[in-house]
Design a protein around this nucleic acid. Structure first.
Lengths: 191, 191
DNA sequence: GGCTAAGGCTATTAGCCTTAGCTTTATGGC
DNA sequence: GCCATAAAGCTAAGGCTAATAGCCTTAGCC
């Protein structure tokens, strides 16, 4: 029996392929092992924590990938243009890889690796907000607002929660404008 | 063996208790059956579809409960006050029952019962927007924006995704104001 | 009084995760 | 060039789950 030359990274790669193709139900250790050409228990040599750890590693990887894509998408842009590009890239990622995106919140958030990856993602958002010159904690509130809007729209869209006939891209346009308007007039005034 | 007097509704009740107490991992037919004082296969008499149908019924119930709570929260209010109350009630529900809230997107959205319940929920949002006199499809875009912001913030908050120290209720306040500002100036202007 | 249908049950199958313990392979030191 | 050792694979086994099949009993109605 020749060695398969498996690594934790390769295991995650196979898992992601499975996730993309079959959704969360299809993500089983048995299936990953079959795809890797290995018996199921052998996976524990590379992912000692079993299925929970595999899911954790997936969340970390997806967060890193998303952070990288967002960072590239906003290069050279600032203010409203950067925000629009950020939202576009965010929604594009979720639309292109809905199962990966849905796997994000399934992992415990107190994990160190995940926090590091998440910090990179938040860093990109904070950088985009630099053009609005928000003071101190206001930048954090604004970043959370950006993230909430992006995640909310992405999550509801990929889940198929918007059932009415109205054009989704028009909604995305309105959402983007509400966000940029809010950022330009930050901190937002009450009624 | 006396009858347990089970009904589909009672099965869902037991399932919800389990979900609240132990999270999605603890929601198994075996556990529900044990709680109901019944052997596992007996559940199929009331929930023929097994676990997937149970999850579907849970999503429907949670959507109905949420719609009811939101409807009550905005009674007698209009415009910004109504929007603020809607957001408060939405986030309160998610915060009070995080596992129920997280169970919402796990069900297929093309289910008739779920669509009916979701229509009630959307109806509440549309009603809240009545005070802003939005024309035609703009009401749909605005309702989606409201829902995206509420869901995004609720989802990220309950998942523990906001790790920085800044006060969450302050962020919620900013989010609410961005939303009401956007609604007051609808359709939102671009840059 | 007996029939029917609903609501229980046990037994069984199939699939999964996980642990334990053995075997083989590759590698690094002497 | 050989041997020790650690890494990486395997088989076997245990325990959990969902789900199906088939049987029995209870409750209610004609």
């Amino acid at each position: 029996m020749p060695r398969a030359g498996l690594t934790p990274r390769a295991v995650v790669d196979h898992a992601l392929e499975l996730l993309d193709a079959q959704g969360p139900e299809g993500l089983t250790l048995a299936a990953v092992a079959a795809k890797a050409g290995v018996a199921t228990p052998s996976l524990y040599k590379h992912v000692p924590g079993g299925l929970p750890e595999l899911r954790r590693l997936i969340a970390v990887r997806v967060t890193e990938d998303l952070a990288t894509e967002l960072g590239e998408a906003v290069l050279g842009l600032s203010r409203d243009e950067a925000v629009a590009a950020l939202l576009d890239a965010y929604l594009a990622y979720a639309g292109r890889s809905p199962y990966r995106y849905a796997a994000l919140p399934q992992a415990p958030q107190d994990d160190a690796d995940l926090q590091q990856a998440a910090a990179r993602l938040v860093g990109v958002i904070i950088a985009v907000l630099r053009g609005y010159a928000l003071a101190g904690e206001e930048a954090v509130h604004a970043a959370r607002t950006v993230r909430a809007m992006a995640h909310g729209f992405a999550s509801l869209t990929t889940a198929g929660a918007f059932q009415l006939a109205a054009d989704l891209s028009a909604t995305r346009d309105r959402l983007t404008r509400v966000l940029t308007e809010g950022l330009r007039h930050w901190p937002p005034a009450g009624s």
